[in-house]
Amino acid sequence: MRKTVLAIDDSRTMRDMLRVALTAEGFDVQLAEDGIDGLEKLRHVQPAVVITDINMPRLDGFGVIDGVRSDERFRRTPVLVLTTESAAELKQRAKAAGATGWIVKPFERTKLVSVLNRLVA
């Protein structure tokens, strides 16, 4: 069965990249363009993994993590935050907030896939 990834990012370029890379790897990719949009889609999509940007309009990535973790159905759903290496301290903040891990932008497709394989069966 195809695993669904919910990717939340306000940058269309980044959404497109995630869509292209993950679709090619056999994931079903659902996109959302900010935190609110992401949490709304969460319930319908029932993703196996959530990938979220941090800095977004309306609701940021930390808000997304809270929203995912506070929903009983997604309490253990892996959440990856998108970050740049230069924002290294964000990784620890995100984990403290409940994120599972991170994806460093710009990402290599193989790296992205190996990260996802460590998180979804």
């Binding site: 253990r76 959440v79 599972t100 190996s114 394989n117 460590r118 998180l119 069966a121």
Partner: peptide, 17 residues
């Protein structure tokens, strides 16, 4: 580790790669 959504079985599988 579980609370944050990680799964040891998958980590070990990744090691086996």
């Amino acid at each position: 580790l579980y609370e944050l959504g990680s799964e040891p079985v998958l980590l070990i599988r990744a090691l086996s790669d």
